[in-house]
Design a protein around this nucleic acid. Structure first.
Length: 260
DNA sequence: ATGTCACTCCTAGAGTGA
């Protein structure tokens, strides 16, 4: 069971790369962020032709999340309970039937925060609190759970190209890092770090300043696993090559494989 | 801080968000 998370930064612009990637890797479940289109304008047909079921929560112009699944999607919700940003499409969660079992998956797009003095930064921290409360609730049940997405935080020094240079960045500030840590402290596991505790890899490179060419990236996209999912974790990888294609997203897919 | 990209709207380029 291959599960991926990818901030595509516009589903419409990224369709050619997305379709090629789906055909090449055939992930069973894909968690998308920043689709940047309204729910009923999502380009469903080419993806459905590859066998995927869809759950979509979009809005005009920005944000937007979606779930693609080769297995049936039983039901889904399109908001965190008690979300502080009710008008932002930043969360979708589905229950998916798999042979002999089931899995719950969430696709999350945490607010960037803009800068440490911005009102949006406070909203980011509040969003983390709502996510924490929801994960705490979910973990009461003994389910296979994967919450993946763009968390807009590099949790540890190793997740930055240079921890000194990252100081002051809204992607590496200590309050955001502590919010992410508190998700782990609930009993969630960071899939990539379970498999690769010391690998220096990134999931995002800014479009500006030649960040990709200079490898000035950060690991801000993550797959969080419940204990029963973590017990089944077989592999985890970052598809960095996609950042070098024509018309790339500024993020690349983060993928894990569970033995379900 | 910003060398880019993708969105929006009084379709042309300024404003926004990242």
């Amino acid at each position: 069971m291959k599960i991926a998370s990818w901030n595509v930064n516009s589903i419409n612009i990224r369709m050619p790369i997305l379709l090629d990637w789906l055909k090449a890797h055939k992930p069973h479940i894909v968690l998308l962020q920043e689709i940047k289109c309204e729910t009923d304008k999502f380009p469903k047909e080419p993806i459905e032709e590859l066998g995927y079921n869809l759950a979509i929560h979009g809005q005009k112009g920005f944000n937007g999340v979606a779930i693609l699944s080769l297995f049936p999607i039983d039901d889904f919700i399109t908001a965190l309970p008690s979300s502080p940003l009710a008008d932002h499409a930043r969360y979708i969660e589905a229950t998916i039937s798999i042979p002999g079992s089931a899995i719950r998956v969430g696709s999350v797009y945490v607010p960037n925060g803009e800068n440490l003095d911005s009102a949006k930064y406070q909203q980011k921290l509040q969003f983390f609190d709502a996510l924490h409360a929801h994960c705490s609730e979910l973990l009461q049940r003994d389910e296979h759970i994967v919450i993946g997405g763009d968390f807009n935080v590099a949790p540890e020094d190793i997740d930055t190209f240079n921890p000194d240079a990252a100081q002051g960045s809204v992607l590496f500030d200590m309050p955001s890092r502590k919010k992410f840590r508190s998700l782990l402290n609930l009993g969630m596991y960071n899939a990539f770090r379970l498999i690769h505790p010391t690998e220096h890899q990134f999931s995002w490179w800014d479009y500006r300043q030649g960040s990709w060419q200079r490898n000035l990236g950060m690991m801000i996209d993550h797959l969080l696993l419940s204990p029963s999912s973590a017990d089944k974790l077989k592999s985890a990888e970052i598809h960095s090559k996609l950042r070098g294609l024509e018309k790339p997203s500024d993020h690349v897919p983060v993928v894990c494989e569970l033995e379900l």
